[in-house]
Amino acid sequence: TGIVNVSSSLNVRSSASTSSKVIGSLSGNTKVTIVGEEGAFYKIEYKGSHGYVAAEYI
């Protein structure tokens, strides 16, 4: 489990890349469940599926 540490919002992406499609966003202080790690990204549970967020902001 981690907490989103941004002042505005954090993009949730379809894969572990900044060039991948943005599938949603999370606001600051949102609690997320981390299920894996790929490079600089965490794989998280997101809306019944999975998404990827930049690990530096969690």
Rank of each mutant, 00 (worst) to 15 (best):
residue 13 R to Q: 14
residue 24 G to S: 02
residue 2 G to Q: 05
residue 43 K to D: 01
residue 46 Y to N: 01
residue 26 L to N: 00
residue 57 Y to W: 08
residue 30 T to W: 07
residue 21 K to L: 11
residue 16 A to M: 04
residue 22 V to N: 04
residue 3 I to E: 05
residue 56 E to A: 12
residue 3 I to R: 09
residue 26 L to E: 01
residue 9 S to N: 10
residue 56 E to D: 08
residue 3 I to P: 03
residue 33 T to R: 09
residue 58 I to C: 03
residue 26 L to Y: 02
residue 33 T to V: 13
residue 7 S to V: 11
residue 52 Y to W: 12
residue 52 Y to D: 00
residue 23 I to E: 01
residue 47 K to N: 14
residue 6 V to F: 08
residue 10 L to H: 03
residue 48 G to C: 06
residue 23 I to Y: 02
residue 40 A to E: 12
residue 18 T to W: 15
residue 55 A to M: 15
residue 17 S to T: 09
residue 29 N to K: 10
residue 10 L to C: 15
residue 37 E to Q: 15
residue 25 S to A: 10
residue 21 K to D: 12
residue 12 V to T: 02
residue 58 I to V: 10
residue 14 S to Q: 14
residue 37 E to K: 15
residue 58 I to Y: 03
residue 21 K to T: 12
residue 57 Y to A: 09
residue 23 I to N: 00
residue 34 I to M: 03
residue 8 S to T: 14
residue 56 E to M: 12
residue 48 G to F: 05
residue 17 S to H: 09
residue 12 V to Q: 00
residue 47 K to R: 10
residue 18 T to I: 13
residue 29 N to V: 06
residue 11 N to I: 15
residue 48 G to Q: 07
residue 16 A to W: 04
residue 28 G to D: 08
residue 19 S to A: 11
residue 34 I to G: 01
residue 15 S to F: 07
residue 26 L to H: 02
residue 22 V to G: 03
residue 3 I to V: 12
residue 45 E to V: 13
residue 43 K to N: 02
residue 15 S to K: 11
residue 53 V to G: 02
residue 22 V to F: 05
residue 56 E to I: 13
residue 25 S to H: 14
residue 1 T to Y: 15
residue 32 V to L: 05
residue 6 V to Q: 08
residue 40 A to F: 08
residue 43 K to E: 05
residue 1 T to N: 09
residue 3 I to Q: 07
residue 47 K to M: 13
residue 21 K to P: 15
residue 23 I to M: 07
residue 23 I to T: 03
residue 44 I to C: 05
residue 23 I to S: 02
residue 31 K to N: 08
residue 37 E to F: 13
residue 30 T to D: 10
residue 7 S to K: 12
residue 44 I to S: 00
residue 52 Y to K: 00
residue 40 A to R: 10
residue 43 K to C: 09
residue 52 Y to P: 00
residue 5 N to R: 11
residue 24 G to D: 02
residue 43 K to H: 04
residue 11 N to G: 08
residue 36 G to C: 08
residue 54 A to N: 10
residue 13 R to F: 15
residue 24 G to M: 05
residue 6 V to M: 08
residue 11 N to W: 14
residue 23 I to C: 05
residue 11 N to D: 15
residue 7 S to F: 09
residue 10 L to R: 02
residue 38 E to L: 07
residue 22 V to W: 06
residue 7 S to N: 11
residue 38 E to G: 02
residue 45 E to L: 13
residue 3 I to F: 14
residue 22 V to I: 14
residue 8 S to H: 15
residue 33 T to W: 11
residue 8 S to N: 10
residue 1 T to C: 15
residue 53 V to K: 01
residue 41 F to W: 13
residue 17 S to E: 08
residue 6 V to N: 08
residue 22 V to R: 04
residue 50 H to E: 07
residue 44 I to M: 02
residue 3 I to S: 06
residue 45 E to G: 04
residue 29 N to Q: 10
residue 40 A to Y: 08
residue 41 F to A: 02
residue 50 H to N: 05
residue 28 G to N: 14
residue 15 S to P: 02
residue 10 L to I: 15
residue 32 V to Y: 03
